[in-house]
């Protein structure tokens, strides 16, 4: 089996962590992602923007009780890319298969 190229957008710890969380839920707020990944707000914000620019997630900003809220949701393109990334990873894990 040939080694497939790993998507550079997803092959980064924090971006992959965010995508793995968003794949599992309907939508999540920035604070949830920050808590679960235990990352800094600045770094998380940068990585979320990269995922958004790649079209992998949708980001909605709104206000709730006068506080700004950033809600993230995985897109169809994001799900497809994530599945392709996992398939590519499997070629590294089972090179003989």
């Amino acid at each position: 089996m040939e080694f497939k190229e790993l998507d550079p957008i997803l092959h980064s710890q924090l971006r992959l962590a965010v995508m793995s969380l968003l794949i599992s839920v309907r939508e999540a707020e920035f604070t949830f992602l920050k808590e679960k990944t235990n990352s800094t707000a600045g770094n998380l914000s940068v990585q979320i923007n990269k995922l958004k620019d790649a079209g992998y997630i949708e980001v909605t900003k709104q206000f709730s009780n006068n506080y700004p809220q950033t809600i993230c949701k995985v897109t169809k393109k994001g799900i497809e890319s994530f599945e392709a990334y996992v398939t590519a990873l499997q070629t590294y894990m089972n090179p003989g298969g």
Binding site: L6, H11, S12, Q13, L16, A17, S20, L21, I23, S24, V25, K36, T37, Y85, V86, L89, Y92, M93
Partner: peptide
């Protein structure tokens, strides 16, 4: 960040959610 690390991270995050 190896492919093995990637799979572990995916597993860990999906379990978190």
């Amino acid at each position: 960040f190896s492919p093995k690390d990637s799979l572990q991270l995916i597993d860990q995050m999906i379990n978190q959610a």
